[in-house]
């Protein structure tokens, strides 16, 4: 499978950047001629992953969030969102719906939403080193669309 386009973006883990990150990824994905629903799914999944970096990865500190995206010749969007924060001790537990370590008003649904709004997600994490989330979304080809 050939990679036909890619981007890289580094942002500071400020909550004001959540909207910027999801809109940037959505703008990149628009080359695949997605439907409004597909764009909305991508924005939501990216927003969850970036918020996780801010709330869980870096907690009360500021660090960098590394976002990269690729579009493949088969119409797949792959977005990698990485932080160098505290990492996740138990990924399986963290991915359980309603599980959250921060309390307050976090619903604990971040990973459940990411799973539900993409075709595939992969999480890799090392305690003390950080977390990488890969989101994969297949954009269905539409009549007359140009994925080039």
């Amino acid at each position: 499978m050939e990679i036909i386009n890619k981007f890289q973006l580094t942002i500071l883990s400020r909550s004001a950047n959540e909207g910027f990150a999801r809109s940037t990824v959505a703008a990149f994905a628009s080359q695949l001629d997605p439907t409004l629903e597909e764009i909305s799914d991508i924005k939501t999944a990216v927003s969850e992953a970036v918020t996780n970096c801010i709330v869980h990865g870096y907690q009360n500190e500021f660090g960098k969030i590394y976002i990269s995206g690729e579009i493949t010749s088969s119409g797949e969007l792959r977005v990698k969102i990485r932080d160098k924060g505290c990492g996740i001790e138990n990924i399986e537990k963290a991915m359980e719906p309603l599980f959250t370590t921060v309390g307050g008003e976090r619903a604990g649904l971040g990973f459940a939403v990411m799973e539900s709004f993409t075709d595939r997600i992969k999480v890799r994490s090392t305690v003390g080193k950080g977390t990488t989330v890969l989101l994969v979304k297949r954009i269905k080809p539409r009549f007359g669309s140009k994925n080039g």
Binding site: G19, T44, E48, T51, G104, R106, A107, A112, V113
Partner: peptide
């Protein structure tokens, strides 16, 4: 125009 799971936390609260 947009809501992620932060909105769910808001409703639950």
């Amino acid at each position: 125009g947009f809501m992620d799971s932060s909105g769910i936390g808001l409703v639950m609260g």
